[in-house]
């Protein structure tokens, strides 16, 4: 699977630095970012905001058969992470012993390679999480 360069490029602030948005009117935080507040509609004032880099495991599963391009990484854990501000996102869990990967385990953001095009293509970097 080839990385779509414009898509990767657009998602750099989100994937590298957990950049999302917040509505200054009702304080609702959005990740991935949304430029329109669903609660306040036209009254919303949405600006960029970095999400917290810590949270906990909300749910998880072990992946034995990985999708194309990730075969050599299996087996690995995928989890829904709940960040400290309540925002949820999906992420691979790295550098964590199997016994420590539980509901509610505290996690911290790490910077890792996400996908890589063959030998001569681009590399997509971004967040993964580690149990602390």
């Amino acid at each position: 699977m080839k990385n779509a360069i414009p898509l990767i490029w657009r998602r750099i602030p989100e994937r590298y630095a957990l950049m999302g948005t917040v509505c200054e009117n009702c304080k609702t935080e959005y990740f991935p970012k949304r430029m329109f507040c669903a609660k306040c509609r036209r009254k919303g004032r949405v600006v960029e905001k970095q999400m917290p880099d810590e949270g906990k495991i909300f749910s998880f599963s072990e992946v034995h058969v990985a999708p194309t391009g990730h075969e050599s990484e299996a087996p690995y854990f995928l989890a829904i992470i709940e960040l400290k501000n309540g925002v949820r996102l999906m992420s691979q869990i790295v550098d964590s012993e199997k016994e420590k990967i539980k509901f509610g385990s505290p996690v911290k953001m790490m910077f890792r390679k996400i996908t890589e095009d063959d030998h001569d293509g681009t590399i997509a970097y971004g967040y993964k999480f580690k149990v602390v």
């Binding site: 990484e73 790295v94 550098d95 790490m110 910077f111 890792r112 390679k113």
Partner: peptide, 11 residues
């Protein structure tokens, strides 16, 4: 690890 390189280490 397989998903680490000198850029991820630098970051």
């Amino acid at each position: 690890a397989i998903d680490e390189d000198s850029a991820t280490i630098a970051v």
